[in-house]
Write a protein that binds this DNA or RNA. Sequence first.
DNA 1: CGTTAATTTGAGACCATTCAATTTCGGTGG
DNA 2: CCACCGAAATTGAATGGTCTCAAATTAACG
Lengths: 237, 237
Amino acid sequence: MLTPLFRRWARRVDLTESDRDAILQIPATRRDFTRDAYLVREGEPTLNCNLMLTGYSYRQKLVSDGARQIISIHIPGEFVDLQNALLPVADHNVQCLSRCEVAVIPKAALLEVTDRLPNVARAMWLDTLIDSSVFREWVVNVGRRDARARIAHLLCELVLRMRSAGLAAKDVCVFPLTQEQLADATGLTAVHTNRTLQALRKEGLIRLSTSQLTVLDWDGLREAGDFNERYLHHDVA
Amino acid sequence: MLTPLFRRWARRVDLTESDRDAILQIPATRRDFTRDAYLVREGEPTLNCNLMLTGYSYRQKLVSDGARQIISIHIPGEFVDLQNALLPVADHNVQCLSRCEVAVIPKAALLEVTDRLPNVARAMWLDTLIDSSVFREWVVNVGRRDARARIAHLLCELVLRMRSAGLAAKDVCVFPLTQEQLADATGLTAVHTNRTLQALRKEGLIRLSTSQLTVLDWDGLREAGDFNERYLHHDVA
DNA sequence: CGTTAATTTGAGACCATTCAATTTCGGTGG
DNA sequence: CCACCGAAATTGAATGGTCTCAAATTAACG
């Protein structure tokens, strides 16, 4: 079940035979979740870390008036809460975008490996550092870009990450978000998100139906989204 | 020079005598920087990590129209770029808010310690994980709160972090940002930031002059900022 | 094929922006 | 110690991007 995880980490960090064996022997339980199910709840003690096997999920926090901000989207092969290996209490929620298969791993098992194998520790650390870089870019996205750029930027990010994970062709990928969720990820309303998407379609930059996104004009979309993929650190990956 | 760093990490993670010795022997060069000086430039290869000794700094990114988004504020005792120990290219800028003294540490020296001492590796990882949690909260702040709440939230965060670092009394602290910088940190304009600050003052929540912030009504400010300090993970620290 | 979720449309209101112009503040040199 | 200077803070008025609130249409699913 953890072979993809090993391959992912091995691309980033030099891992030995014993690193590989240790990773593959980490105890993991496969679990299924339905759409909207919670993988992690804010405020609860952290016992496990969750690795996406199939399906999509997102991190979110709620504010006092009930509004929701989505903080990141997660695709198969990614941990959604590796930080909880060290943080004792969850500081945000994680929910499924679709039906999901998840590998649930006791945090103690992860930490035990990091104590023995510094290369594996480094791989885990790097994983969370790249997460962190994406959060920073999202601060910029919702803080200093207008609606059109925010959405274009998020679309660029999703397609590139899917492609890099081998889940998408050059310019077509699954699009797992509703417009309301896209709005919550970009700090907009669903209504304005809808209008902005229509504009992007009319400009000929994208084709987008409920579950499929096609990028028709990469240069145009990158330009619209002020997109620079450096923050994804795919060269490290 | 690194004694405060050891103490900081020792509060979070169990460190042995040899951990302590190793930390204190990490080679570090003290350097002075003037206001506005760059500690890190986006796109440049990362050679060192920078630990704030005195003074304040901030991380920022620029968007295509020249607007700036501040991503975090850093106070004495904090690393401003520990993630660059593993990331080969900087994905954002770091600039000084004031005159600063900085301990510049070669990343190779940090990584060498993590390979030998898993507890120290864990302390560094945790440091970046708490950074990460703050970034997530900032996504929420600029994405889903109005101007009044954004500013109140940032003020709460700053005072609590200063206090936790022993740099502030109960409700007074140095306020190192200009209104323009505060605007760039909250995704607002300087003009609207100014008006919102006046409202917070008129409500009797804060007193704020150029370089000093006083919280007059903690409950009121927390409420205004929808502030919950869980994301700071000070219980871990 | 019915039912609910998701998307789309319209119109009016509002929060925040823009663009200047003015006042205050902090630091510096005479 | 005070006059000066540039930076920072403040004010006003008009504009505009995004929101709000419905209501209508379309798509998804059992």
